[in-house]
Structures are given as structure tokens and as C-alpha cells.
Amino acid sequence: MAAETGTPTTLTLKSNDDELFSVAESAAILSVTIRNMVEDGCAGGVIPLDNVDGKTLASVITYMNGISAIPADEEKKKSYRDKFLSDKDFETLADMVLAANYLNMSCLMDAVSAKIAQVMEKKSVGWVRRKFGIENDYTPEEEAAVKEEHKWTFEGVETDDDN
């Protein structure tokens, strides 16, 4: 396609709230989902992405453009990813990881997953529950039993009042 004309091909992506985005094919095919569509010849018109909203898609496209502009240097790519994700809150990260999953972009999925994991790292159960709004549906007896079973994982972790 692009190779034949010698000019970069641009794809049009449509979010589920009907926003349209132009993106270079070379960047967009970081998504295996989009790449498959391009290879199957379904990318002529507008590519509808039914599971991604406009705000998230804009962010994903920023990432696609940014990362594809970096030559094959894993360290530079990693530092770009770190910087790209550094100011994102959890809601945005959750949207991004779902989008990355839907678009089949393993590098973005890994980076966002690692970022979420980083937030949980070395934190107490109570802290993680509060941070992510996780409701504790264990009975006190059940919770005590689970804690007893994995007692060693509580050593050296910050304690807090409600746990």
C-alpha cells in the first residue's frame, strides 16, 4: 500500500463517540488489531474502534506517534513510555489498558500494567483498598484465615489501622 506510492499512508480512526483521528499507518500498525485490518484491506475508509472513546484514543495516538518516532533503542523507548505515563491518573490508566488490550498493543499494555503494579508495590492491603476503592467483601473470619495462610507476605509491609 504505502510502499507502492512512496508517500506515507494516513489512516482515519473513529472512536465510539464518533471522533475522527488521522494517524500515519506506520504508527497505527503498532496495534495488531489495526494491522490486521490494514492487511485484510479493510482500512480504506474509516476504521471504527467501538471499544475506545475519543479521549483515550487521542492519548493512544499520541503514544503511537511518539514511540514510532524513536528508532530501535529499547532504553529510549522505555524512557519515553515512563514519561508518557508519568502524569496519568488511575482512571486514565484503566482506560488505556483496556484500549491497549482491545487494540492488541502488547508494549502499551505491559507499560500500563507495570505502572499500575508500581502503585501497589509494597503497599498495605488497606492502602490499596482505599486507593482503588476496592470493597472488602470478606467476613472478618475469612479475612483472618486468608491472612494467616499468607502470613509471610505481611512481614516488612507498612501497617495501617483498618487492616
Binding site: 501497589m120 492491603v125 470493597e135 467483601d137 499468607h150 507476605t153
Partner: peptide
């Protein structure tokens, strides 16, 4: 250690 401890968060 961190991964196993998530089992205490909730039933799911």
C-alpha cells in the same frame, strides 16, 4: 510477596 498479598484485598 506483593502479588500474593493481593489475595487479602477481596474475594475476587
Amino acid at each position: 510477596k506483593d502479588a500474593v498479598r493481593t489475595s487479602v484485598l477481596s474475594k475476587s
